[in-house]
Design a protein around this nucleic acid. Structure first.
Lengths: 109, 109
DNA sequence: TTTACATATTCCCATATAGGCATATATTAG
DNA sequence: CTAATATATGCCTATATGGGAATATGTAAA
């Protein structure tokens, strides 16, 4: 079996750094493809392909405006990632707590 | 160029569903490889390979205990993912807010 | 309608996968 | 030392990838 498709879910889609950059850029407001190309310094076809992936997994929405296509991030799509990572929050808190306690013990030795 | 290596960072490592399952399973406590194999119903070599990937990116720690290898999740490694997704939290809040407001407007029309 | 602009798609290729199977390595038991 | 157990690694294969170049599609301007 090969690796799962980039379009199989949000986790796979955001594994690619360029796509995370795109999402960061689209978080604040709608942008035309050309703007993204300028921002990322990547080829236009590459950007279009990344946008296609993001669109397929519902991480961006698009609408046409004249000859341009305006894309915006759909933050809702990030939520499952956030929820999953959140389940580990309490654990790294504990880990840090233990590190802290050990440091304090060392002080008194 | 091909896709980034699964071991290139935590984002790529957790893109694979099986590896997320492993992390979930290892979140609470240390487990031997055999236990993970039993839990996931996957082949032992596959599990070992997944663990290798997770170890390479620092998402799990391992220690030997007799003939067994005990693995535990290193929650700290998830933190960058959590932080990144967190930057979108305010946006999905806004989006939901807008949906809510539209619903309320429709009621009064 | 012809031209120009903006974006999407196709074709190309080197590369890394995930899993199954066989086998190597490490550790303990007899 | 030899056998048994636990895990890791190597080999195999079909598959999807990301970027670049060329080209197709869609829309507006002249």
């Amino acid at each position: 079996m090969a690796r799962a498709t980039t379009t199989s879910d949000a986790f796979n889609a955001v594994a690619e750094p360029r796509r995370r950059e795109i999402l960061n850029y689209l978080a604040l407001r709608e942008r035309a493809v050309g703007e993204i190309v300028a921002e990322l310094g990547l080829g236009q076809p590459s950007v279009s392909k990344h946008l296609r992936v993001l669109r397929d997994v519902g991480l961006v929405r698009a609408r046409r405006d004249g000859r341009q296509m305006l894309y915006r991030a759909n933050a809702e799509g990030i939520r499952p990632l956030h929820e999953w990572t959140r389940t580990f929050e309490k654990f790294w808190r504990h880990q840090l707590q233990r590190v802290k306690e050990r440091a304090e013990n060392d002080e008194n030795t």
